[in-house]
Design a binder for these strands. Structure first.
Length: 253
DNA sequence: ATGGCGGGAGAATCCCGA
């Protein structure tokens, strides 16, 4: 089973890239973030024609998440239960007996800002929900744009801002791994300076000035099935790319 | 020191992302 996550920064603009990527990679589940469209504008027919079902949780202009799969998507949950939030950042579904939680984590803007406080509250609510979700669904993958670089090696050495690498954000990431979830990317040898996001400005992709902020976390019950986890930089090299690249997990299930 | 790119909404000297 192949599970991937990709922040597409507007599904309307990136739909051709997504369709090409689906055809080339044939994932069993693809988590998308930053759709930037309302549910009534979701490209259901185009994806269906490509052989993919979709569940989605969108809003105008900002945020928005979806899970695509050629298989049935069951037991769909939208938003973090019990957490009051206008922003559409969570969708979960079960595919072939694997619980998939797709999240677009808040950016946080700047350490200490109101948006940063929201980010930490959101992370706390997510963690408590996942504690229960893991009990109900031991075979679980949490995928998405976390907007957190978990370790120093996950940010370019010249990264100057504190946001995405601050101690409170990393503590929140550690709270997720304390549930038993493991960062699948770090189960394997990886190239140095492996990132999943590069700023559009400053020739950042060409210089590999980036962050690794898109992750696939795997529950204990699924960890023995993990076989590989990689960043696919190919879509970042296309015309009019997303600023993020897909991260792909291979599971032997 | 600043903004640098890109998407979106809608007409801004705009907002937001990471």
């Amino acid at each position: 089973m192949k599970i991937a996550t990709w922040n597409v920064n507007s599904l309307k603009v990136r739909l051709p890239h997504v369709l090409d990527w689906l055809a080339a990679n044939q994932p069993d589940a693809l988590c998308l973030q930053e759709l930037k469209l309302e549910d009534k504008g979701f490209p259901v027919a185009e994806l269906q024609a490509a052989g993919y079902n979709a569940v989605f949780n969108g809003q105008k202009t900002y945020n928005g998440v979806a899970i695509l799969s050629p298989h049935p998507l069951e037991d769909v949950v939208r938003d973090i239960p019990g957490f009051s939030d206008e922003q559409k950042r969570i969708i979960a579904a079960t595919v072939n007996g694997v619980r998939i939680v797709c999240g677009y984590f808040p950016n946080g803007q700047a350490v200490g800002s109101d948006k940063f406080e929201y980010k930490l509250r959101w992370l706390g609510a997510l963690t408590e929900w996942l504690r229960a979700e893991l009990t109900a669904h031991p075979r679980l993958v949490l995928g998405g744009d976390f907007n957190i670089a978990p370790e120093d090696r996950d940010a370019h050495p010249d990264w100057k801002d504190e946001i995405h690498v601050s101690a409170p954000e990393r503590a929140a990431f550690t709270a997720l791994t304390a549930l038993g979830l493991v960062d699948a990317f770090r189960l394997y040898d990886q190239p140095e300076r492996a990132f999943s996001w590069w700023d559009y400005r400053m020739g950042a992709f060409r210089r590999n000035f980036g962050l690794r902020i898109d992750h696939l976390l795997v529950s204990p019950a699924l960890q023995p099935a993990c076989r590989a986890c990689t960043v696919d930089k190919a879509p970042r090299k296309l015309e009019r790319p997303s600023d993020h690249a897909p991260v792909v997990l291979d599971l032997e299930v």
